[in-house]
Structures are given as C-alpha cells and as structure tokens.
C-alpha cells in the first residue's frame, strides 16, 4: 500500500516536472533557433550575431531588452560569444549571450567586437572583387588538397586543415581579395559546415609563415561594437521598463497573498485549539 503510494507520488512528480519544463529547442544544422524566450518571441526582429565580443567594464546582462531583471554580471575585459542581436525602439543594439548556462542581453554600446572576417570585409570592402576569368586563369581548384580555412586573409588563426578533395569550380566563393603579397584569397560563406572562412588560393595548404612572408597584417584587435546609436548620446543603455514599478507591484501582490494566507492559518489554528480539550 505504502509502496503504491510512493510510486504514484513519483509518477505525479515526474508528470508535474514535465509539464513545467519549457519545450526543448531543436537545433537544425543550418537553421539555428534561439534558446531565449525574448529572442523566440522577437525572432523576426533578431539577427544572428555569432561574433566574439569583450566587455569594456563590469557589464550587466539583463533578462531581456524589456526586462530590467539582472540575468548575470560579466567582469571587465571578459571575452564572450554573441548569439543573436536585436535593435530596440530607441535604436539601441542588444546582444544575446550565454554565460554559466544562462542567457542574458547586453547593450552593444558596452562591448567591443574582436576583429574577424566581418571587420575585415568592412575595412577592405573596396578591394573585394567578384570572380573573373582574368583573375583566376592559372588557378586549378581541382588540384587543391589539404587546404586550410583561415579567419580572414592575414589572420594567424587557421580554423581548420582539411583533407577534402579539391573544388570543381569557383561557386563556393562569394568574393575574392588579393593581399599585399599578391596572394589571391577566396571567401567561403558556407561549405560543408564551415562558415565565414577564407582559403588562400595561391597557397591553399601553406602555414602562416609561408603565406605572410614576414609581413604582419596590422589591425586593431578590438573595436567598439556600436560606435553611435540613433540618439547620438552616450548614456547608459538599460531595458526600457521601470523595474522598480514592476517589483513594487509584484511585492504588493505577494504581500497580499502572505497576509491573507497568514490570517487563514491563524483562524485554522484557533479553531483547532478550541476543538481540542
């Protein structure tokens, strides 16, 4: 009898937990979905933003751009990966980040972004070219083997060395760049799971020393993630909600529940003591 009750209680516990657990998110290979409630609700206004950022000073991450509840606090000069970004009604950019298995939103104005292929493309936008037969008349992609994927031309970070077969044509490259040493590079937006990377077409498997030929590619390692906002002011960005009012309102409701419950408990206790001899 007792064992049956324990079993039934266990099943009840399991069912209740299952009901309260939010729906799990399925991550498709090419269609990432946010695991944050605000991002889910505003998915049409959010953009994928998988860059590396760094805090300028101690930075507060909020539950959402519309919720001033503190999710967590990041230390000064801390590197963190971005996930999605969102622009609020005041023109402020917000970044969704993960930290200690929690999600939080940080105003981009409080962050710096690490130099990456997007920074490179912004800096060299006038030097990026489309495919032309003239440019690649003596490049045979089918013989390219053991090639390296780089973060951007001149980067010391080789993302991957692969032993995949060569390429049939130039279709996988979105645009091209010729560096200061005359080496031609192709930008790969997506290829077999690799995103936003570059291949040095003139030396596909060369290491950094061979490719750079001693020439260091100079750039700032970090730059402001949001230089100016639409308001043009540099005020501290906070969620567009008065948290104090919400907390006071909820506090009043909780206080009401506590008082009513306490009164009922006191009445019950008095009734019980009257009934007992």
């Amino acid at each position: 009898m007792k064992a049956k009750k324990v079993l039934l209680s266990g099943i009840g516990l399991l069912l209740a937990c299952m009901m309260t657990i939010p729906t799990l998110h399925v991550y498709a290979d090419s269609i990432p979905e946010p695991d944050d409630m605000f991002a889910e609700e505003h998915i049409d206004e959010c953009e994928l933003d998988v860059r590396v950022y760094r805090t300028k000073e101690e930075t507060t991450a909020y539950v959402s751009p519309e919720d001033a509840t503190v999710a967590f606090v990041l230390e000064t000069q801390m590197e963190i990966g971005g996930d999605w970004s969102y622009k609020d009604g005041n023109g402020h950019q917000w970044l969704l980040v993960h930290y200690n298995q929690k999600t939080g939103w940080i105003p981009k104005a409080e962050l710096e972004v690490k130099y990456d292929t997007i920074s490179f493309e912004e800096e060299h936008k006038n030097e990026l070219v489309q495919y032309s037969d003239d440019l690649f008349k003596n490049v045979d992609l089918s013989t390219v083997k053991d090639y390296r994927f780089w973060k951007y031309p001149g980067s010391e970070d080789c993302m991957e060395i692969t032993d995949d077969d060569g390429f049939e044509n130039f279709d996988i490259f979105s645009f091209f760049y010729t560096d200061q040493n005359g080496l031609r590079w192709g930008k790969v937006d997506y290829y077999r799971g690799r995103v936003n990377s570059w291949i040095c077409l003139d030396n596909p498997n060369g290491d950094y020393e061979e490719i750079s030929k001693g020439t260091k590619f100079a750039h700032e390692e970090y730059s402001p993630a949001e230089t100016t906002n639409e308001t043009g002011k540099s005020e501290k960005v906070k969620p567009n909600v008065d948290a104090t009012f919400v907390y006071a309102l909820v506090g009043a409701m909780v206080g009401f529940v506590v008082i009513v419950t306490a009164v009922i408990l006191i009445v019950l206790k008095k009734k019980k003591s009257r009934e007992e001899p």
Partner: peptide, 13 residues
C-alpha cells in the same frame, strides 16, 4: 508548482 509537488512527495514519505 514545483515546490508543491516536491514537498508533497517528501511529506508523504
């Protein structure tokens, strides 16, 4: 809700 379920289980035991 979670507290009620868990504590109910413990009180039963």
């Amino acid at each position: 809700l979670m507290t009620l379920v868990v504590e109910l289980f413990v009180i039963l035991l």
